[in-house]
Deep mutational scan, measured.
Amino acid sequence: GSMEQGFLPKGWEVRHAPNGRPFFIDHNTKTTTWEDPRLKIPA
């Protein structure tokens, strides 16, 4: 929902695949990933 959306880094969006699995869109680089960007520790 909109709650989890608010925690994503700037430029990211979460969508759900037809099977219900969430995936993440990085509008900054125009890419998608199954990995939650929030789980990655910034270098």
Score class of each variant (00 low, 15 high):
P9E: 04
P9L: 07
G11E: 00
T31N: 06
L8N: 01
H16I: 15
T32P: 02
T32H: 07
A43P: 12
G1W: 09
W34F: 08
P22E: 09
A17W: 06
F24Q: 02
I41V: 14
I41A: 13
R38A: 03
P22T: 08
P37E: 02
W12K: 01
R38F: 04
R21W: 07
P18E: 09
E4F: 14
A17M: 13
S2D: 11
W34D: 04
R21T: 09
G6Q: 10
K30E: 09
G11M: 03
P42G: 11
K10W: 10
D36V: 02
T31A: 06
F24M: 01
I25M: 06
R38E: 03
A17N: 07
V14H: 06
R15P: 01
T33F: 07
W34T: 05
E4N: 12
P9S: 05
T33L: 04
E35D: 13
T33Y: 08
N28Y: 07
W12S: 02
A43R: 09
H16E: 07
G11H: 03
K10Q: 13
L8K: 01
G11I: 01
F7K: 15
I25Y: 15
W34G: 00
T32I: 15
G11Q: 02
F24C: 09
E4Q: 14
D26F: 06
K40C: 15
T31E: 06
G1E: 12
I41T: 12
R21G: 04
G1K: 09
E13F: 05
P42T: 11
F7R: 15
I25S: 02
P37H: 01
S2E: 10
M3G: 11
I25F: 10
F23A: 00
W34P: 00
R21L: 07
G20T: 15
D26C: 09
K40Q: 14
D26G: 00
G20S: 05
S2A: 14
P22R: 10
K30T: 06
E13Q: 05
W34A: 02
E13P: 00
W12I: 01
R38K: 00
G1S: 12
K30R: 09
G20K: 05
G6L: 14
G20Q: 04
G20I: 00
I41R: 11
R15D: 03
N28L: 08
R21A: 07
T29H: 06
W34H: 02
H16D: 06
H27V: 08
P37C: 07
F24K: 02
Q5L: 15
S2K: 11
Q5A: 12
R21P: 04
E4Y: 12
L8V: 04
P18W: 09
G11F: 04
A17D: 13
A17E: 07
H27N: 08
E13M: 02
K10D: 10
K30W: 07
P42R: 09
S2Y: 13
T29Y: 04
W12E: 03
E4S: 14
F23Q: 06
A43G: 12
T29P: 00
Q5Y: 13
T29V: 01
A43K: 11
G11D: 00
E4L: 14
F7D: 15
F7G: 15
N19Q: 03
H16M: 15
P22I: 14
E13V: 05
E35R: 13
L39A: 11
W12Q: 01
D36E: 04
R15Y: 07
R38C: 04
R38G: 05
L39S: 11
T32A: 10
G6T: 11
F23C: 15
F24E: 02
A17R: 05
H16F: 15
H27G: 05
E13I: 04
W12V: 01
T31G: 02
